[in-house]
């Protein structure tokens, strides 16, 4: 073992993100290197700091590798944020990840100064999970307090006529239970670890599993560490992080999400999928979020409208595969 890397992240060591994604990826890198690379995973922020500091920790070389939610540092990864938008991300994490891969070099790489990206990904999309609120139309949501996932998620909630509330994820179950919030935009995959099925009655998504936007994630290495690696070691990382892997990560998160919704329906919850006709008003209501985002990020060398157009095209193309 000539090269040891510390990979730092915020979830527990039994979280599927570690067991199903990070560990297999690390193992693949180690094997590709013929055992010369060793990746030590430090879960639960054990190397110190708060989750929003992860990006800076990688940039500063406090740790070598991180897995983090881009949205923890809002505004820091403006280009990649395009994949968080409702109607851009639709219903297929694999297609979204492949689209991210295909546009990375030309359109997203500038977001990651000081970082060498291993891979980017999304989850299966924000579902609407509510305590008692059955939602089939926008009227049902009027004024309801919903927990936000990211800043784009906050815009979605506002666009749907509900009230965004920010709170740390661990606060969510008691807040749902006591009615501090009526619900949350959060993927199904979070149901088992937080036991959300006990505090909610409804899991709601749109026609053909279309979701209310998404969250983007990254696994990145400190740039200097990367630049100092010999070519064959770099290749070991590259081979473990190719286009296939980005797609595969989509399948992994889809599986976690399916497992989560099964958990909820087994517990007797209602999994509501809106009909095509019911879905349309929601899509119409969320369209301005895309415009708001374009307005927010456009400037300098970022063309928000072009990013949206390209991302939509690539998502469609990769879905057709």
């Amino acid at each position: 073992e000539d090269y040891t890397f510390r990979l730092h992240h915020m979830l527990g060591q039994q979280a599927p993100a570690q067991t199903k994604m990070l560990e297999p990826w690390a193992k693949a890198v180690e094997e590709n290197s013929g055992g010369r690379v060793k990746i030590e995973i430090f879960p639960s922020m054990t190397l110190g700091g708060r989750p929003p500091e992860l990006v800076q920790q990688a940039r500063d070389g406090i740790v070598d590798l991180i897995w983090t939610v881009n949205g923890y540092t809002p505004g820091l990864f403006p280009r990649t944020e395009v994949m968080e938008l409702p109607t851009v991300y639709r219903n297929d994490p694999k297609a979204a990840n492949l689209a991210l891969y295909d546009m990375f070099e030309d359109d997203l790489a500038q977001d990651y100064a000081g970082l060498e990206v291993m891979f980017l990904h999304v989850h299966a999309g924000q579902g609407l999970q509510t305590a008692d609120l059955d939602v089939t139309s926008l009227d049902d949501l009027a004024g309801a307090k919903l927990r936000i996932p990211t800043r784009t998620g906050a815009w979605v909630i506002e666009a749907l006529g509900a009230t965004p509330v920010a709170m740390p994820v661990p606060e969510l179950p008691p807040a749902l239970q006591k009615g501090v919030v009526a619900g949350a935009l959060i993927p199904w995959e979070i149901i088992p670890p937080l036991k959300i099925q006990d505090q909610t009655k409804y899991q709601i998504e749109m026609y053909e599993r279309e979701r209310f936007g998404n969250t983007t994630f990254q696994v990145s290495m400190n740039q200097a560490r990367w630049d100092g690696l010999p070519e064959d070691i770099q290749q070991a990382f590259r081979d473990a992080s190719g286009r296939d892997w980005w797609g595969q990560v989509g399948d992994i998160w889809r599986a976690s999400d399916d497992f989560g919704i099964k958990f909820a329906t087994d517990a007797g919850n209602t999994h509501r999928i809106l009909s095509e006709a019911e879905t349309q008003p929601f899509l119409d209501a969320m369209e301005p979020v895309v415009d708001r985002w374009i307005e927010e990020v456009t400037g300098g060398d970022i063309d928000g409208a072009a990013l949206v157009e390209k991302a939509r095209a690539l998502v469609t193309e990769n879905t057709a595969d």
Partner: peptide, 16 residues
């Protein structure tokens, strides 16, 4: 280096 770099934000992260 890791200590010096971590001290840039560790205290703020912790106190907030």
């Amino acid at each position: 280096a890791p200590v010096f770099n971590q001290l840039k934000t560790l205290a703020y992260g912790q106190f907030s």
